[in-house]
Computed example of a mutant assay.
Amino acid sequence: MLLVRGRAGGTALTGTIYERGEEPPSYKGAPDGDEPYVWVCDAFYEVHSGGSELELDGRTVNVAFESPMPRGFETREAAVTAAEDHVRTQFARVGLDAAAVEVEVVEQRPGADAHEESPAGVRPDDADRATGALESGETDDEDEA
């Protein structure tokens, strides 16, 4: 499993690439399972009223979420490229420069303990939200300690 996380404006968005042999979530619209790599992540956009409030670059933005639309890919490279593009696009949809989004790809260890840090720097509890989580107000302060 690969976690693809984009950070910008004080917020992070994490999605998941399920690899061959891993079981992606199944729901209406999910790929049929024939593709060896499946990308799943939230999609969101800014709305003028309603939605969920998000602190972004010192301003409050209302966002609405679309149903996650999993996409299947034949190669890992194609899945990672599409995932990076998707994450950057979500930030651009709420007014941030897509080129300013920091994207990281982290391989999640199978069976990682929820209380220990993985060698790649992603806490397993982050993976619990990785089907497409938007994490408002995230800071790296504890990682720098």
Rank of each mutant, 00 (worst) to 15 (best):
D143E: 15
R7V: 10
G15I: 00
A30F: 09
A92H: 06
R109K: 12
E53D: 15
A130W: 02
P25L: 07
M1K: 09
E23S: 15
A114T: 14
E74G: 14
G137N: 01
W39T: 01
E22W: 10
I17H: 00
S67V: 11
P68R: 01
D125E: 08
G51K: 07
L2I: 09
G33K: 06
Q90G: 02
E19P: 01
V94I: 15
H86K: 02
D97E: 14
A92Y: 12
P24E: 08
R76E: 13
L13G: 01
T139G: 08
E22R: 06
G15E: 00
V103P: 03
G50S: 05
A8M: 03
D141Q: 09
K28F: 14
G95D: 06
V47P: 05
A120H: 08
E77R: 14
G21C: 04
A145M: 10
T60V: 15
E19N: 04
T16P: 01
E19C: 12
A127T: 06
T11K: 04
L56G: 06
D125I: 12
E22H: 11
G29R: 04
R59V: 13
V47N: 03
D126E: 13
T81E: 15
A100D: 15
A130D: 04
H48K: 13
R20E: 07
I17G: 00
G111D: 15
R88Y: 07
R7P: 02
G29V: 09
G50I: 13
V94K: 06
H48T: 15
V94P: 09
T11P: 06
E53C: 09
E117V: 10
A112C: 05
P70R: 06
A43M: 01
A43V: 01
R123Y: 14
E46A: 13
D140N: 15
W39S: 00
V63I: 15
V38D: 03
Y45C: 03
H48C: 03
D32T: 12
P36C: 08
A82G: 06
R5Y: 00
E35A: 12
D85N: 10
D141N: 09
G95T: 05
G21P: 12
G33V: 11
A127V: 12
Y18A: 01
Y18C: 01
A145V: 14
G121N: 03
Q90R: 05
E116N: 11
P110F: 06
V106E: 00
S26V: 13
G137K: 11
S49M: 04
Y45S: 11
E135D: 13
E46H: 08
L54M: 13
T16D: 00
R123T: 08
V63N: 10
E116F: 12
G132P: 04
S118M: 15
Y27G: 08
A114C: 02
F91M: 03
A99N: 13
A30M: 06
G29E: 03
V106R: 05
S49A: 14
R7E: 15
F91R: 07
A99C: 02
